[in-house]
Amino acid sequence: MTEASGPIDVGRALRALRRRADLSQRELAERSGVPKSTLARIESGRGAEPRFATVERLVRAAGGEVAIAVSGGTRPREASGVPGDGLGSDFGRGSDFELSPDDELRDDELRDDELRDDAGRRYPSHLDVRKVRRLTDWPGAWWAHWYTLPPERWPLRVPEVTYDLDRRRRDERRWRERIRRQVRVRRDTAGLPDGSLRLLAELPDGALIGELRAHERSVDLFLGEDLGDEREIVVDGVLVAPEVRLLGIGRRLVALLADEMARAGIRTARATAEFGGVSFLMACGFALEASRPTALRLDRRQRPGWATERPG
């Protein structure tokens, strides 16, 4: 239970709650029995402060709950038994209202909806309107993943903001953002030999969604000459579950690898990759080298002893 430190903007909180429930103003008004005009007036901050009963009906209809605490630290009592996100406000009567969400309303969800359309109207909160900062932010640019073009060469006019009308897409985007916030990376040392690294990306429930494996090698042994006990890390692979790719999880694993290298006094890491793995490693700070190992493949469907060689 998160205690409100003071009065909060009821309108902003309601918009955030609607966003969580994926409800339009009309849908929430129908569920709560509160006129849509009243809901719009509360969210815009126009007119007198709303009645507590009205706010409670709106919160409960959106799946939230309101908790009340008398000033002076008295233990709060629940005003509704519906689990979920909550809403708090001080209506000027000496009571503290507490926010009681199952997943805290973050600052970016409680922000003022400053974005407006060309007519100066606020966009619907439940559509999760977002600014288009990169071409791939806009669903209309379906070709953006295959082409890298400067803005002046974009083939279509790109809007300043965008949103997803498809509920399934909105749910998926919210789920991915929740994964991005919750994932944690750590080093696993259980059952590994000295010189081996296993870095994990996990969710709070222990679900494994990413892994980096690497091993240390002595350059002295590799080159057959004394280089002053020079050591290197060889990256064996970086794996991220397909459904959570492009969330920066792989980069966090590589960043943890860099931290482990610094702790061990190792300056160099090497890796081989192909296709998208090359771009990923370069985005993480790796650089292409002119000299590199040759990639070999043994295809057992061919005659025994035959191996196909191809450039790395």
Rank of each mutant, 00 (worst) to 15 (best):
W138M: 05
P76W: 02
L87R: 09
G63M: 03
L58W: 11
S89P: 01
P155T: 03
R116N: 00
W138I: 13
L127P: 04
R51E: 14
R167Q: 10
E98W: 15
L149N: 14
S100E: 08
R170C: 09
S89E: 01
G72M: 09
D103N: 04
R46Q: 09
W138Y: 13
D85M: 05
G47Y: 10
D102A: 13
Y163N: 01
S71A: 15
A141V: 12
E98Q: 14
R178Q: 12
A79K: 13
I179G: 07
E109M: 00
F52N: 08
A53V: 10
R93L: 09
A48M: 07
L58F: 09
E56R: 15
L156I: 13
G72C: 11
R46L: 08
V70H: 07
T74G: 11
E152I: 04
R133A: 04
R134I: 01
V183T: 05
D113Y: 06
W146V: 04
A67H: 15
R186W: 04
R57V: 06
G47T: 14
A79G: 15
D107T: 00
R173P: 09
R51S: 11
R130L: 02
S100W: 15
D164Q: 14
R60S: 06
H145P: 09
S89L: 07
G92Y: 00
R176K: 07
V59K: 07
P151F: 10
V66A: 05
R181E: 05
R186P: 00
T54G: 05
Y163P: 01
P150I: 00
V129W: 02
P151N: 11
D108H: 10
L58Q: 11
R51I: 04
A190C: 04
E160N: 08
R173H: 09
G47A: 07
R181Y: 02
W175L: 05
S71W: 10
V82A: 05
E104F: 13
P50W: 09
E49Y: 15
R169P: 08
V82C: 07
V185C: 14
G81C: 07
R130W: 10
P101E: 02
A69G: 15
P101F: 01
R111G: 01
G47Q: 07
L87S: 09
R51N: 10
L127E: 06
A67L: 15
P76N: 01
V66H: 07
G84K: 11
G63W: 03
